[in-house]
């Protein structure tokens, strides 16, 4: 059984009860269909492929480039006060 509440908390989504039920069903069906995959057994040191690229050591020098002007950055902020991005209060 997939815990939809936990999953929504992790993914920061608020689903309606109908959406939650529907998606839960779909996800559980998907997991059921993946039983053979879950049973695959690789040795612990089997290589992982994270990306098809085989590069290594893609690095840059420690040099300062120009930043982006603040007003341009804040243009895309959901809320701001000209200096800071603004968010609702955080309860510590």
């Amino acid at each position: 059984m997939i815990n939809m509440k936990t999953l929504q908390d992790l993914t920061m989504l608020a689903l309606s009860p109908e959406e939650s039920t529907q998606l839960q069903g779909e996800l559980e069906q998907k997991i059921a269909g993946m039983a053979e995959f879950a049973a695959l057994d690789f040795p612990a040191d089997a290589p992982l492929c994270v990306t098809p690229l085989t590069h290594t050591n893609m690095m840059r020098d420690d040099v300062v480039h120009t930043h982006t002007p603040r007003e341009v950055l804040l243009q895309n902020a959901p809320a701001h006060n000209g200096e800071y991005y603004a968010a609702p209060a955080i309860q510590e």
């Binding site: 997939i2 936990t6 999953l7 929504q8 993914t11 989504l13 998606l23 996800l27 997991i31």
Partner: peptide
């Protein structure tokens, strides 16, 4: 949403 939830699930 489906993709995001499935993605979270696969990493949780």
């Amino acid at each position: 949403k489906r993709r995001a939830l499935f993605g979270s699930l696969m990493l949780a």
